[in-house]
């Protein structure tokens, strides 16, 4: 089980790295087309935005670890393990419940957008936005899993989590 998770995570990291590279390279191509060829491509901008959107939600679902999140955990780190476990449980339950509540209507909205095509690549917006539904499902699953482990093992030993990837 642990090994499978490890390789799935490595795979997700590789996909995120590819998206990042895709964004970077497409952007450079756009600059090249505008300033060197003097004949700007129309599609590069849209592709960059798709990479960006997917990087946020795919990354949010699969490669952003608990400690990478921007969070305010002074209280959480200050209390003993017992209350910490309760806090973590409330947190996971609230996220799972709210996301689950919004899942069906949100998919309704995304599916509705099959009639709307993107501006230049002419892809249905449903396909582009479907990453958000994947994100919702993945976060719900992860939070349910967390609830189970919290019941079974209590809070894990987290290193000081405050050094988040909060990048300014």
């Amino acid at each position: 089980m642990g090994a499978i998770f490890h390789w799935l995570r490595k795979g997700a990291e590789a996909i995120s790295a590819l998206m990042m590279f895709g964004l970077f390279a497409t952007f450079l191509l756009q600059i090249y087309s505008r300033y060197v060829m003097d004949a700007p491509f129309g599609w590069t901008l849209e592709l960059c935005l798709i990479f960006w959107l997917w990087m946020v939600f795919f990354g949010g679902a699969f490669i952003v670890r608990e400690r990478d999140h921007i969070r305010f955990d002074i209280l959480y780190m200050a209390v003993p393990r017992g209350p910490r476990r309760v806090m973590a449980l409330i947190s996971a339950l609230a996220i799972a419940a709210a996301f689950l509540w919004s899942l069906e209507p949100t998919w309704g909205w995304i599916d509705f957008l099959k009639i709307k095509k993107s501006a230049t690549l002419r892809v249905p917006m449903r396909d582009i936005y479907s990453i958000y539904a994947i994100f919702l499902v993945a976060v719900i699953a992860a939070q349910l899993w967390r609830i189970v482990t919290l019941f079974k093992h209590g809070v894990e030993d987290e290193a000081s989590a405050s050094t988040a990837g909060a990048d300014q």
């Binding site: 505008r34 003097d38 004949a39 700007p40 129309g42 901008l45 501006a119 230049t120």
Partner: peptide
């Protein structure tokens, strides 16, 4: 010809810029 003309970002706008004879750019 060769005039870089800023037009809004969508295809239809960019096409209008081309149709005017300019080099449209978003």
């Amino acid at each position: 010809k060769g005039v870089t003309l800023r037009m809004p970002g969508t295809d239809a706008w960019q096409f209008l810029g081309k149709a005017l004879g300019a080099n449209p750019t978003p």
